[in-house]
Computed example of a mutant assay.
Amino acid sequence: MLVDIVPVGDVPANIKRQASDGLRSVYDCEVNVHEPQSIPNGAYDSNRNQYGAEEFIKLASRVGDGEKNIAVTTKDLFYRRRNYVFGLAYLDGNGSVVSTYRLQTSSDGGFSNKDAGEIFGDRVRKEIVHEIGHTLGLEHCDNNRCVMNFSPTVREVDVKEQSLCGSCQRQVL
Rank of each mutant, 00 (worst) to 15 (best):
residue 148 M to W: 10
residue 131 E to S: 12
residue 95 G to S: 08
residue 135 T to P: 12
residue 136 L to R: 13
residue 46 S to T: 01
residue 43 A to W: 01
residue 110 G to S: 13
residue 20 S to T: 08
residue 109 G to L: 11
residue 96 S to T: 10
residue 13 A to T: 14
residue 123 R to M: 09
residue 116 A to L: 01
residue 135 T to C: 07
residue 89 A to D: 11
residue 90 Y to H: 12
residue 158 D to P: 07
residue 115 D to L: 12
residue 88 L to I: 00
residue 47 N to W: 00
residue 38 S to K: 09
residue 9 G to A: 03
residue 80 R to E: 02
residue 39 I to G: 01
residue 145 R to Y: 11
residue 96 S to L: 10
residue 102 R to C: 02
residue 2 L to H: 08
residue 157 V to R: 07
residue 100 T to L: 08
residue 163 S to V: 10
residue 77 L to M: 03
residue 60 A to W: 12
residue 108 D to Q: 15
residue 22 G to W: 05
residue 62 R to I: 03
residue 137 G to F: 11
residue 149 N to F: 09
residue 114 K to H: 06
residue 41 N to H: 08
residue 26 V to Q: 09
residue 56 F to A: 05
residue 16 K to E: 08
residue 115 D to P: 04
residue 19 A to S: 15
residue 137 G to A: 10
residue 61 S to H: 00
residue 97 V to M: 12
residue 152 P to M: 11
residue 160 K to R: 14
residue 94 N to C: 02
residue 167 S to G: 03
residue 113 N to K: 15
residue 122 D to K: 15
residue 41 N to R: 13
residue 166 G to T: 10
residue 169 Q to C: 07
residue 85 V to W: 08
residue 53 A to G: 03
residue 40 P to W: 08
residue 167 S to P: 00
residue 128 I to S: 10
residue 137 G to W: 11
residue 95 G to Q: 06
residue 103 L to Q: 01
residue 80 R to G: 11
residue 11 V to M: 01
residue 147 V to H: 02
residue 100 T to C: 11
residue 42 G to C: 04
residue 124 V to I: 15
residue 166 G to M: 04
residue 108 D to K: 11
residue 78 F to S: 00
residue 116 A to M: 10
residue 32 N to Q: 02
residue 97 V to K: 01
residue 100 T to R: 05
residue 155 R to I: 06
residue 107 S to R: 10
residue 150 F to R: 14
residue 86 F to Q: 02
residue 9 G to F: 08
residue 138 L to E: 06
residue 120 F to S: 00
residue 78 F to C: 00
residue 83 N to V: 06
residue 90 Y to S: 02
residue 19 A to C: 13
residue 141 C to H: 08
residue 130 H to T: 05
residue 77 L to N: 04
residue 165 C to I: 11
residue 76 D to C: 06
residue 94 N to V: 03
residue 59 L to N: 09
residue 114 K to I: 12
residue 114 K to Q: 09
residue 167 S to H: 03
residue 13 A to H: 13
residue 172 V to F: 01
residue 159 V to G: 02
residue 43 A to T: 01
residue 29 C to T: 15
residue 105 T to F: 12
residue 17 R to Y: 02
residue 150 F to K: 14
residue 36 P to H: 02
residue 60 A to H: 01
residue 81 R to C: 00
residue 32 N to Y: 08
residue 71 A to G: 14
residue 141 C to F: 11
residue 107 S to A: 14
residue 135 T to F: 08
residue 35 E to Q: 09
residue 162 Q to E: 14
residue 115 D to T: 15
residue 37 Q to H: 00
residue 5 I to S: 06
residue 129 V to D: 07
residue 1 M to D: 05
residue 89 A to V: 05
residue 58 K to Q: 12
residue 53 A to D: 01
residue 6 V to Q: 03
residue 123 R to N: 14
residue 96 S to N: 07
residue 138 L to Y: 01
residue 120 F to E: 03
residue 96 S to E: 01
residue 101 Y to E: 11
residue 70 I to A: 06
residue 112 S to A: 04
residue 88 L to P: 02
residue 114 K to E: 13
residue 122 D to H: 13
residue 45 D to P: 07
residue 33 V to H: 04
residue 124 V to D: 06
residue 13 A to Q: 14
residue 34 H to D: 09
residue 141 C to L: 06
residue 119 I to W: 04
residue 56 F to K: 09
